[in-house]
Every structure is written in C-alpha cells, then in structure tokens.
Design a protein around this nucleic acid. Structure first.
Lengths: 417, 417
DNA sequence: CAAACTTAGTTAGGACACTGGCCGAACGAA
DNA sequence: TTCGTTCGGCCAGTGTCCTAACTAAGTTTG
C-alpha cells in the first residue's frame, strides 16, 4: 500500500484475469458505484437494481460495512405495504482521497471522503517561482503531512494522493517534465514527495489540472447519466479535460486536451510556446485583460490579487463599460470557434467552462451557446454548455476523487476495521 | 440471437454484475484476445502470460475448442529441454463477421473470420442515388443473403453484420438520419435489412465509415501495443475515427470525429453543409481536383472512374507537373493544420491516413510528418504518421471486425458444436 | 543406454462466491 | 386479530478457480 502509482492505466493481459476474489471485489465495486450514483437504498432494492441476489447482497453489504465503506441508515418505507428496509448508504467516516494543486502562487489541498463530501480544504500562498524547488517540495510536504495527520487523527484512511503541477507531466517517470510558469524542469515530484511524506505514504498519482477539473465536474454530472463531458479550463493557459464513456481520456502519453496551442488565431500572435496563432493568445486570461483595459489599468497590475481584478472587470461590464463588453464579445467569438472544433471532434454531451470563463459565465454562456447551436449539424450533435460551480478548488477536488477511484474500483483495498 | 443490436454500449449498472458464468466467459475472452494479439502458443505459456493456472487453462482451452474457436496446432519446442507443448491458436473455421459498406456507386461486403483472415470479399456497382431506397435495400439484402448462404454452406457461423452508410446515423433508432450523397433521409436501415435477410438474421450493427476504418486499422496496430490511434478518411468528405485506450470513441450521440467541417479555411469557402470555411473544402477530394487541374480537365470528368483519375494525377505528379505538385503541397499544408489540431486534442500514438490521402502517401507523408514534428510541444506528443494499407475495403473489413468483437467479448455466445 | 532432469498438460481435492428457496421479522390493510 | 407483502438472514447446491500431485514426453548426464 505504500507503493507510489503514477503511471496511467494501460490495457494489459494480466490485468484481465478474473478469479473469485476479483469477482467479489467487482460486485462490491458495483454496489459502491450504484450507491454513489443513486444514493442510499435498501439491500432488497440494491439487489433488484444490480441483478445480484438478495443473499449475495446481504453478504457483500456486511463485508463493505466491516470495511467501513457503507453504513446502515434509517428505516425506509419503500412502498405502502410490507416490511420497511434499512437504508444502506456510503459511509464517509473511514476513507478519503487527497488532492494537491501546486500553482504559481499558491498550494491548494482538498480532501474528499467516500461519500463525496469535502472534509478538508486549504489554500496557502506560496511564491513557487521565487523559491528553490527543494524548498517548495518541503513546503508542500509539510502542508500534506499536516493534513494527513489531521485526517488520520479523525480516524480516516487516506486512500491516495494526487499531485497536480501546472505543466507537462511524464507519467511513466512520475515527474514534471516542464512547468514554464514555475520554472521547473524534470522534477521527479512523485519520488521527492514520497521521500518527504512519512512514514505511511499513500499511493501518489500525478495528473494535470484540466484533466482533474474534468474528473471533478464529471463526479457532479455522472449521477444525471452524463458520460461524455468536456471541461475547459480558462486561466493564463487554456486546457481541456476529456471524459468519454465515463472514462478520462489521457491520450498516448497524457497530452490529450492540450488545446491552448491550437492554431486558431488568424492574426497569428506570438505565443509563449514559441509558435504563433495559439488559441490561448486570444482567449486566455492575458487576452481578456489586454482587450478590456489599457496596459496601465489597475486590472493589469500583477501585484493585485487576480480575483479582485476579475471582480473589477465584472463590475465594469455590469455598469455597461463598452470596452469591457467588447472584450467579452471578442473572447466569446474566439471561444466559440475553438469550442466548435472540440464539439466536432469529441461530440460531448456537456461542456463545462472553468477558470475565468466560469467567472464571466453570465456574459459568455448565452452567446456561446447560440454560436454553437448555429453550427449544429444535426440534433444530437449539440452540447449542453454550462459553467463550473466548483470554482478554484476543482483541481484539488478532482485529485482527491482520482485517488478515491482506486477504492471504487476495488473496495477490498481497504482492510476491515 | 436474432435480435438486432445497433445501440452503442453505455455503461450501465446491471451490466456490471459478475457471476461465475461471466467470470469464466471473461477468462475465455482474455485467452482469445491474447491469442489474437500475440499469436498461437502452448497452454503452459498462455497460463504463465495470463496469470491463470495451468489447470484452469486446460479447462478453458478445451471449452473454447469445443466451441470451435481455437484449435491445437503443431508441437512447439519452447526451450531446449522438457516436454514440448502443443500450440493453441485461433480457429477461423467456425465463426466470422460480415461488414457491409453502402456507398454512392457500389456496395462492398467483407467477411473476416475469427483469426482475422478475410474469407470473402465483394464489391458490386450500384447506382444508389438513382434507385429508390427500397430497391437499394433489396439489392443489398440479396448480396448479403448470397454471401451468408455461401459462408454458412462452408460451415461457418456469422456472428454479426455491420452496415455502414455514408451519412449521419441515429444509433438509438438504428436508422440513417441523413445521407446527402445518397439522397436518403430517415431510413430505418437496420429494421429494413433485418426484414429482408432471413430466416436467421445475425445481430445487425450500424456504424459510420471513418469509425470502421479506425477499427480496421487498429486491428492491424494493436498487436504492436498501440492503443491510441486516429484514422483520417479522405474522400469528397473527410472524417476521423478515434481509438483511445483501445476503445472506439463514439461521442455522446455518435458524432465524434466529424472533422470534415472544422472551421479551418481562413478564406471561408462555401461548403455543402451550408457553412463556410470547412476543412473538407480545402483538403477533400474536390479541393485536390480543383487545385490540380482546370475544370475541363479529364481528372474532373465525373463519368470516369475515380481510381483512373487519381492515377492520372499521380502520374502527372511523378512526371513533375508543377500544378499537380503545387496542389499536393497546398493540400499538405492544409492537412497539417487540421492534423495538428487533432494531435493537440487527442494525442494519438499513430495517425493512419486513408482514402485518397493514402493514394498520395508518397507525396504527403514526409512533408506532413515534418510539419507535425515542428509543432511538437514535447517528446511524446508527436504521433507516428502512416498510410493505410487496407485500401478501399477498410470500411467493410472494420464492420466485420466490429461484429466479431461480440465474440471476443463473450465467447460463450457461440454454442458448442 | 539408462537414470535424472525439465517442461507440458491432466486429475483430484479444496476454498469460495453466487443462487435459490425457505424462514422469521416487521409492517399495512381488512 | 389475521392476512398479505416485503425485508433480510440462513443454508444447501452448483460451479469456478487454485493448489498439489501426477503422468507424459522430451533432453541431459553419467
């Protein structure tokens, strides 16, 4: 259990073998997922809905209860007649996952328990680019250890950690290949953190922010039956997370959804990546600020907190400031062009806008939706466009969920009390 | 077994339940896939490689052999000492799948057996747009019935059919929603064909051509460990098929990979779809012909067979004709722009060019590869660019493979001899 | 040339997971 | 109070995979 796992899962022959233990684990997993998707219900109803027999259901539920993953709730009157059942529901008091977002000027942590409740959350200002890598890792490890202690004191097991650095990840090596905004290059973050976290290191996963955003949003949409979702994170950089048929699509080497550098700007501005015409040069945060205000305007002052600056812009838009509104219109147009590409390629059912796009959702959503609808080739090809409700914490939250996913895949990973 | 299944598989709670029969079926499926991916080998080696015990392997193999899915081959000397093992390999003499491509001017059929061998192939000229829908369906059914009879006479079971119309599909209804080049609208093709094929109708699947091309190509690449592949079909229309982590990505309603209408033409030509600037207006077959020759040139003569016209163009290019070469260069540039979008979004390991792109592979491949490599953000983000070797039959072949996939998913669908 | 060794495949016994039927418990309705 | 319904537990039965021992068929060694 102290092994660090950071490689993306690949289909492999050995993994496919099924024996009785795995059969039982798979059925236990089925019950957990069913409870997560549809909420608490009686054993009898679970049996009917999953197709398992009542006897098996009783056995599996008592097994899950011994592991502290489910608990019995109140009596529940299903119909009008007959003996009422005892509600079985996910028990959040035993297991949680922990997500760690390392960003340019802060480190955010979020712990989510098995029932999906955020039980711990923290955000700590850290000037990452100015500090040596070692110092940052020490700082992160301290924050993580503190939270681990607090969680464990409360009697919970941490099923896993997910670290999310803002940059290009080498999954196989468990390292950050390149994080321009941090000034990091080839940092073996998984091994370094594992060394600094002790003595019991939960498995450490590594994933990028847009993918984790997609996971966090998908957790909210899955109960409604959505299985194809696209998450678009709007920050200085722009990235997408893709969920297809309920699974996170990572691509061959984890670079799926790198949409910030799609060549979509006909005027071909210079991008930080060295190429020209990248999408994020026209819809990224810098583009909004540049379009909405002159260089010496307060919203372009990097010493002011970003949230305040966005708030200022939003207030101006609300007051009818023409330049701000024009900037938002421009962003909308350019966003629509890129989104229409993503819709054509991926055909998602739901598109979730995150980051600063979410902040300006009231201005972007409607015209964007109209622009997309206009391009619709056919009923069914259009997507529902919504705004993230998770805010800044979506990355850390998604990380926690990814870590928990291991338990939902195989509940027997958690030992009996 | 006579039910027609055409809906895309969706994750569902009931499907997840595992019992002992499914455990055995899953292990049998594992063996079949392992044999398909790695070729014939002894029971002992299969046991070691899959993780199953030798005893279980013996039992499963004899079960599979009774169903006619595997057979014993020659003695195979693994090491130097010890008893030599008997090779177990896929047996193609019992089961096959049948793919049916309905195109504008022909209907192509391909039957592929369990071992991946194409055992029947046919292509029949049919002037689909000129004929009433009923007449076309009658004609298709006749062709299918004839091939079914021939296959069944040879003692094979047809595990399933896959029909591929060139148009927008309604999976849920099993119908062709709109096929502009055929003049079809709302044709319930699955039900109509099921009625006309008798008396034993295998399950009928429905899938579009680019997706089937991807499936057919993936079948060739999977043994090399590729699990993320993009297939790009180049015809008058342009479409993509996406394989991610070994699975065909259909999108929410089956419209994934509709890349022909990506807004990538800065000059914004009018497209048949009603919008402007669609990718296929600059890289589709019509664009090549328009760029390479004047309107009254023989290559633009629709009465000549397409293959001849392409051949003419290729000969001209070989002879150094400047206009043809310039056209190919232009196509290359525009193709690269779109492909780079797809690479950024999907991060495939392999990109397979099909259709007319494959025909001009010797001119397109190298400059395209260079253009993509130039845009590479990082090692690992680049994709291998190759040309399809399957040619025109890839759609029908992919259809046959899709039908066979049911057997690879659950070998117990095939009864004992 | 025969005994020892090595590897392949089969057989027997055991552990274990799901099923199905039966039973008591708990409740509403008559 | 009695009947019918539903919930959940219990137990025997079936079937799967696993381990271990065994037979089979070669090679190597003395």
């Amino acid at each position: 259990m102290t092994s660090t796992s950071h490689t993306p899962r690949r289909p492999s022959a050995a993994a496919g073998r099924v024996d009785q233990a795995q059969m039982r684990a798979a059925n236990m997993a089925l019950i957990l997922r069913h409870l997560r998707a549809h909420g608490g219900r009686s054993r009898a109803r679970l049996a009917a809905e999953t197709g398992l027999s009542k006897a098996t259901m009783s056995s599996l539920i008592s097994d899950l209860a011994e592991r502290g993953l489910v608990r019995e709730g109140q009596l529940h009157r299903a119909g009008t007649v007959g003996r009422p059942g005892l509600t079985v529901e996910l028990d959040g008091r035993r297991v949680c996952g922990l997500g760690i977002e390392i960003n340019v000027d802060y480190v955010a942590l979020a712990a989510v328990d098995l029932s999906g409740t955020v039980i711990r959350e923290s955000s700590t200002p850290v000037d990452v680019p100015r500090l040596p890598v070692d110092a940052v890792l020490d700082r992160v490890a301290t924050l993580v250890n503190r939270m681990l202690d607090s969680i464990r004191e409360a009697g919970l097991i941490v099923a896993g950690l997910t670290v999310s650095p803002p940059g290009v990840i080498d999954y196989a090596a468990g390292s950050v290949r390149f994080a321009p905004n941090l000034g990091w290059r080839n940092v073996p973050i998984v091994a370094e953190l594992a060394d600094r976290i002790g003595p019991d290191v939960p498995p450490i996963h590594l994933e990028n922010d847009a993918k984790l955003g997609a996971v966090a949003e998908y957790a909210a949409w899955a109960p409604e039956g959505v299985s194809d979702l696209l998450y678009l994170s709007g920050d200085v950089g722009v990235g997408a997370g893709i969920i297809a048929e309920g699974r996170l699509i990572r691509g061959w080497s984890g670079f799926s959804g790198e949409v910030g550098h799609l060549p979509l700007d006909p005027e071909g501005r210079q991008c930080g990546c060295g190429r020209t015409g990248c999408w994020e040069t026209i819809v990224g945060l810098s583009a909004l600020l540049r379009l909405a205000a002159p260089e010496d305007d307060e919203v372009q002052d990097p010493t002011r907190p970003l949230e305040d600056r966005l708030h200022t812009l939003h207030t101006r838009a609300d007051a009818g400031d023409e330049r701000t509104l024009a900037a938002l219109r421009q962003i909308t147009d350019d966003l629509a062009r890129g989104l229409s590409v993503l819709v054509d390629v991926l055909n998602p059912e739901v598109i979730v806008l995150g980051g600063y796009f979410a902040f300006f959702g009231d201005y972007l959503l409607e015209p964007l939706g109209a622009a997309l609808a206009e391009r619709r080739m056919d009923e069914g090809s259009g997507a529902r466009l919504v705004v993230s409700r998770l805010g800044i914490s979506s990355t850390a939250r998604g990380g926690a969920i990814v870590a928990l996913e291991d338990v939902f895949d195989n509940p027997t990973l958690i030992d009996t009390h």
